[in-house]
Design a protein around this nucleic acid. Structure first.
Length: 389
DNA sequence: TCTGGGGTCCTAGGACCC
DNA sequence: TCTGGGGTCCTAGGACCC
């Protein structure tokens, strides 16, 4: 029999803030932005803030209205990552089969650890205690015979709980749930459920695989068919290497000025370029993303070239051309994004280039230029561009 | 209330080749 | 004069996750 634990930190960013700042404890903490920040959303709300109706992904202005007395913070990703590493190290102490899903959650395959830690449920309790004593943070856990069910179970245990689905009861467990508990069926699919009158997983369970596919499409139909049977474990199995790298910015006020937009694009391109430089990957595919303020419409463009992008200047020039090809002139830009797709392992030549001295010096030079550009956006940009050519 | 940022995967259609 | 079918690569848009 296989056993999996899904461990999910409670209100992670807010909890770290409350740990670091005792004066925040017991108070509504909202991480995501300061009151007055335009176009921000709530990243994490502490449980004290949730009482006021504040939750993740909510526009910050709405949160401020609901909870005017809350403690609002922009957040500190570096600190959260640091804390995340502490947590993951504790989890790793219970099984080598640790699969980190994001900064604050992970699966643990604890099959065959009984001799070391006792029965699965006992291990889960030890794990919760260890995470708390060693990091000062609480974690919610789900225990089941497969990852998908364990993931849903941990959600049922929040906050600071343990929910066990005994082996053999996976399907029964799923059948007891409303459709909004199906992980992987988001807003649009929930609307579809409503339109078709599916309220519970039991309703969906009555569909044959063929009907499910005809209603929801191939992949989603197949997934739903398995999910309501507690069998969708393979959802998590195929996470391999990274495939793309990107950066995007939402501006407090829409951008209309070409020069301003181009400055932002260079900044974004620089960020992505230096990030990929530090990996074993290269790319022949660029993409851009533009969102307009007027109607929140989003368009994207993508282009693949014969050879990998070699320099920041090349990347920037190609992104710029693609941008001008797609942009609807006169419309205000709310969001601008850019990235590299189809990541492939560096060819030996480039790998060499990265690690030799000349490559490092060039990287340093480009980093310096980037810094100057950031500090003096207007004047330095020109020089940056000319240096890079 | 007006909607972040960084990712993954799916679908559908077009181009091109055999 | 009309027109198949499969495979691969590419693009645009969208759904979903934390």
């Amino acid at each position: 029999m296989s056993y999996f634990i899904h461990a999910d930190m409670d209100a992670f960013y807010a909890s770290v803030e409350q740990l670091d700042h005792p004066e925040y404890r017991g108070k509504p903490v909202i991480v995501g932005g300061l009151p007055g920040d335009r176009r921000s959303v709530v990243s994490t709300a502490s449980y004290e803030a949730r009482v006021w109706g504040v939750h993740s992904a909510m526009p910050l202005v709405q949160a401020v209205k609901l909870c005017p007395g809350g403690i609002y913070l922009r957040g500190n990703m570096g600190r959260y990552r640091e804390k995340s590493e502490e947590v993951m190290a504790v989890l790793a102490g219970f099984s080598p089969e640790l699969q980190q899903l994001s900064v604050d959650e992970a699966f643990l395959d604890i099959t065959g650890t009984e001799k070391l830690f006792g029965p699965p449920e006992v291990l889960a309790k030890k794990l919760k205690r260890a995470v708390y004593t060693e990091t000062g943070l609480t974690v919610s856990t789900g225990l089941a015979s497969n990852k998908y069910v364990a993931k849903i179970a941990s959600g049922m245990s929040k906050p600071n709980g343990l929910y066990v689905v005994p082996p053999g009861e996976e399907e029964k467990f799923m059948l007891s749930l409303p459709v909004n508990k199906i992980w992987g069926a988001g807003e649009k699919t929930q609307e579809l459920f409503v339109r078709h009158g599916f309220k519970s997983c039991a309703d969906l369970h009555r569909l044959s695989r063929e009907i499910a596919v005809s209603v929801f499409g191939k992949a989603l139909g197949d997934f739903i068919y398995r999910a309501v049977r507690g069998q969708a474990a393979e959802t998590f199995e195929s996470r391999g290497e990274i495939r793309s790298m990107s950066a995007e910015r939402t501006f407090p006020f829409d951008l209309y000025d070409d020069f301003e937009v181009e400055t932002q694009l260079l900044d974004i391109a620089s960020e992505v370029f230096f990030r990929i430089l530090q990996t074993r990957f290269q790319s022949r595919t660029i993409f851009i993303k533009i969102r307009y303020g007027e109607d929140f419409s989003t368009l994207s463009g993508r282009e693949t070239f014969q050879n990998p992008l070699g320099t920041l200047n090349e990347l920037y020039e190609k992104l710029l051309a693609l941008f001008h090809k797609k942009h609807r002139p006169g419309q205000g830009i709310r969001l601008l994004g850019a990235g590299l797709g189809g990541l492939e392992t560096k060819t030996p030549l480039r790998q060499q280039e990265l690690f030799n001295e000349a490559g490092k010096k060039e990287e340093q030079l480009e980093k310096t230029i980037l810094k100057i550009n950031t500090k003096f956006p207007g004047a330095a940009l020109k020089r940056g561009r000319s240096w890079l050519v």
